[in-house]
Design a protein around this nucleic acid. Structure first.
Length: 821
RNA sequence: GGACGGUUAGCUCAGUGGUAGAGCAUCUCUUUGACGUAGAGAGGGUCAGUGGUUCGAACCCACUACCGUCCACCA
């Protein structure tokens, strides 16, 4: 009889992983035990959602690793050419925030103190260390992914993909630069996208202020210095006598202000007094009103949250400090009517570890989601259609509605970030001259000299400031002039005065003018016969957008980096080598299933659909399986501050990886959160041990098994039931219903196989007449169960399998039911 | 304000028309050679409420209540 310990020893798991990995079967090229040419097998692909390189693995990672490993192991056993491609994400903002916080904690410095080069160096080092930890931990979870294809969203091939994608979108007019109001985080000094905002409720004093004849209310008096528009609803009867555009003077914080009445429907007559003043530079809603009525916008707060000179005596103060002082001043000027202390409002914070958002108007890069780019469709429509028409299936189905709702409210995606870690935007700027207009000889009408300036009066050909003009004064003295227009004064119709301050030069001879002109504009062809003075030139900012930097000197790259989701949006194909048309791309794209958390449906899933739609005219995946959040046993979200983080590796050290995997699988339905308790993990540790001991019994009692034994009726019935189990399990696996598949297997193994079949087999084994049949039956049920359980609990099943087999259970053929449908 | 979920045993949740289920927890018994990380057994639920459809409803429909999540420019 074989000596087998009475308890399953999980300390050998790392060794087993080694065995699997070195077998080569993690790669699609690895072949399969069921034989045949591996290249004829159908592919099955999953892209691992790349964990952020910001530290260590948490239980949420353990969850997706488990579910995806179940999927891939199942498909591998079916004989598919499986690829599970692992990787990590540089996570622009999260990593930058982390590195900055470490820098501040350890050295009291900000990134601006050490400079961009040094910061990038440190961030890269930090990312590398995190990567190493994470990759090690992914292995510990038993993930059977193909390490030979590992990718990183910031490595060279992915960087090429990002630059290529940007260039293609730019060329298609889908990427544009514009001044818009953005969510500015003064702490990290970057803007963040709408989706990265986390709203927090805050109780704050609500101030009712006198604004001329009106009362306005605000929670932010320190932003109100420049408010010169007073807005009310056009249908509000109370303010009927005030006309749109009407102006009057009001006494305000720092003296008199000329106020203008604006009527706009955005104002809610029910709220406060039904009148408000606006601060377009620092409030998204106000910005929109200002845009509608073409109003001025003035910056009040700088990038650090400090008040600008417009704040008068408060200039230079941080807004936080300034508020009480401003309130004091308002009070002393009797402009403060009352304070509501119970006002609750929501403030925007940067969910990526930043501070309170202070909106600012900034030049940023956007992706236009409404522009038609192909087949009469916009990105928005594409994103909607591929889900609506079923090309992409979302599990659970009800999240499709959430997806549609989000798409319908989607606005242009701001993709630039003012951070120093990530993909720098592949755009270069330079001021270059462009040929602009033609003028005519003999254009000078008159010249006026005085001690400081010299004014040439020319015929107006639509000059503008910055134009370069060369001309000849052909009147009598033959003066040749050349310079940049710095000021224009309209005079009589069709004539303008060009004032010469210091940039104008005059030459006595035409040759001298040409020489000077050539020196400054070597690329222009000018000679004696060229009427040089016929041309005017203008300096214009030039933009160069391409995959690689321009070859000539003098170009400066846009300092901004791209939103991290820009690069993760390319993941399904960038990780396969795009933009190169690789064999992998052909074979494995579109991928079969994307398994990820519902919390990044918008951030990531939608962006992948967008990017793949535009760049490949295809879908990134056929199915999206969305799991929920892992919560603690009291349904609380896990967070560091609450101290309720479950460390997956601590758990697995104690109970084994298989136990944790089962605890994360059973009772875990897509789209809903999963409470995880240690009790539950312990329960499945017990199950692992149950499997171990049932196997121990079978192995110890099937010595001398005769494979040709005839099965008696009773044992045939048992194998028929087993067939039923195979059929049900396979069906559930194909529906991605792992929770029920795992639960059924658990139930069958423990309460049918162990409790009944084994118990009833004991007397049969003792009787020589039934022994052969029972042995064969027991072995069959055990081995079938090991196979069925393997995707869920790979370690214990493989360990048992290895006691009697040379081949790996990992690539054993998935059992087939002989039952007819 | 809008959208989407949920409400079933003490806890976590399955269960889409035909006599209420699982795991954990609880209680009782069992030192039997696979396993005490076990075995045998038990208790426990007017399936949120109201009304409707149906021979029949946890399940379909309407409304109500409560809980949760996401989205939204209420100063």
């Amino acid at each position: 009889m074989k000596e087998i310990p009475t308890h399953y020893d999980q300390s050998k798991e790392a060794e087993l992983y080694q065995l699997w990995e070195s077998s080569g079967y993690f790669s699609p090229e690895g072949g399969s035990a069921s034989g045949g040419n591996p290249d004829l097998r159908k592919p099955f692909t999953i892209m691992m959602p790349p964990p952020n390189v910001t530290g260590t693995l948490h239980v949420g990672h353990a969850l997706f690793l488990t579910l995806q490993d179940i999927l891939i192991r199942y498909q591998r056993m079916l004989g598919k050419k499986t690829l599970w491609l692992p990787g990590t994400d540089h996570a622009t903002i999260a990593t930058a925030a982390k590195v900055e916080s470490i820098l501040y904690k350890e050295e009291g410095k900000t990134r601006h103190d050490i400079g961009r080069m040094e910061f990038e160096k440190r961030a890269t080092k930090f990312a590398q260390e995190s990567h190493d930890t994470i990759v090690h931990q992914i292995r510990q979870m038993g993930a059977s992914c193909d390490w030979s294809r590992e990718a990183y969203t910031l490595d060279e091939p992915r960087s090429l993909a990002v630059r290529t994608a940007f260039k293609k979108m730019y060329d298609a007019g889908l990427v544009y630069r514009g001044a818009r109001i953005v969510n500015w985080d003064p702490k990290l000094k970057t803007n963040v996208s709408d989706d990265e905002i986390e709203w927090k409720e805050e109780k704050a004093p609500f101030y009712y202020l006198k604004y001329g004849p009106f009362t306005i209310a605000t929670a932010r008096p320190e932003t109100k210095f420049g408010d010169k528009y007073v807005v009310m609803h056009p249908k509000d009867a109370r303010y009927k006598k005030y006309k749109d555009g009407e102006q009057f003077e009001v006494e305000w914080i720092n003296g008199k202000v000329l106020a203008t009445v604006i009527k706009d429907e955005a104002v809610d007559p029910e709220f406060g007094s039904g009148v408000m003043t606006i601060t377009p530079w620092h409030d998204a809603a106000d910005f929109e009103i200002a845009q509608r009525h073409k109003l001025d916008a003035e910056q009040i707060i700088d990038d650090r949250g400090v008040l600008l000179p417009i704040a008068g005596e408060f200039a230079g103060q941080h807004i936080k400090k300034a508020r009480p002082m401003v309130v004091e001043k308002l009070k002393s000027k009797s402009l403060l009517e009352k304070i509501d202390e119970n006002y609750v409002h929501r403030i925007a914070t940067n969910s990526r570890g930043g501070g309170i958002i202070e909106p600012q108007i900034k030049e940023q890069w956007f992706i236009d989601v409404n522009k038609v780019f192909r087949d009469g469709k916009s990105l928005k429509q594409w994103m909607r259609d591929v889900v609506a028409n079923g090309r992409i299936q979302i599990i659970p189905k009800h999240l499709e509605k959430t997806y549609f709702h989000w798409i319908d409210n989607l606005r242009d995606w701001c993709v630039s970030r003012q951070l120093w870690f990530g993909h720098q935007i592949p755009v270069w700027y330079k001021k270059i001259e462009t040929e602009k207009k033609m003028g005519f000889a003999g254009d000078i009408v008159s010249q006026v000299f005085n001690t400081k300036t010299r004014t040439y009066r020319l015929r107006d050909h639509g000059f503008s400031i910055g134009d370069i003009v060369a001309f000849e004064d052909s009147s009598k003295t033959n003066i040749f002039g050349y310079g940049t227009i710095t000021e224009i004064k309209k005079t009589t119709v069709g004539e303008i005065d060009l004032q010469d301050k210091k940039h104008w030069k005059t030459y006595e001879k035409l040759e001298d003018l040409i020489k000077a002109f050539k020196r400054h504009h070597p690329q222009k062809e000018v000679n004696q016969s060229t009427p040089a003075w016929l041309y005017t030139y203008k300096f214009a900012p030039a933009i160069y957008v391409n995959i690689d930097p321009p070859k000539e000197k003098g170009w400066t790259q846009d300092p901004d980096t791209l939103d991290t989701w820009f690069s993760s949006g390319l993941w399904t194909f960038s990780a396969l080598g795009w933009p190169n048309q690789t064999a992998d791309l052909k074979m494995f794209h579109p991928t079969d299933i994307l398994e990820t958390g519902y919390d990044i449906l918008f951030f990531w899933v939608a962006r992948m659909i967008l990017m793949t739609g535009f760049l490949l005219n295809d879908i990134p995946f056929k199915t999206v399986y969305l799991h929920g959040l892992v919560r603690d046993k009291d349904r609380q979200k896990m967070s560091k501050s609450k101290g309720n983080i479950v460390d997956p590796l601590g758990i697995t050290d104690q109970y084994g990886v298989d136990a944790l995997r089962m605890a994360l699988t059973v009772n875990n339905l897509p789209g809903s959160d999963l409470p995880l308790s240690e009790d539950k993990v312990r329960g499945y540790r017990n199950f692992a041990n149950k499997i171990w001991n049932a196997a121990r019994f079978v192995i110890q009692n099937t010595d001398g098994l005769n494979k040709d034994s005839k099965l008696n009726k009773e044992d045939q019935v048992i194998l028929k039931q087993l067939d039923e189990l195979i059929k049900d399990t396979t069906k559930l696996m194909d529906k991605f219903d792992f929770a029920h598949a795992a639960e059924n297997l658990y139930h069958y193994f423990w309460h049918t196989f162990a409790d009944k079949i084994i118990e009833e087999a004991k007397p049969k084994l003792a009787d020589e007449k039934t022994k052969g049949s029972a042995q064969f039956m027991l072995k069959t049920v055990l081995e079938t169960n090991l196979k069925l359980l393997h995707p869920f609990m790979p370690f214990v099943t493989e360990t048992i399998w290895q006691m009697e087999h040379k081949e790996l259970l990992m690539i054993a053929k998935w059992p087939e039911s002989s039952l007819n449908e």
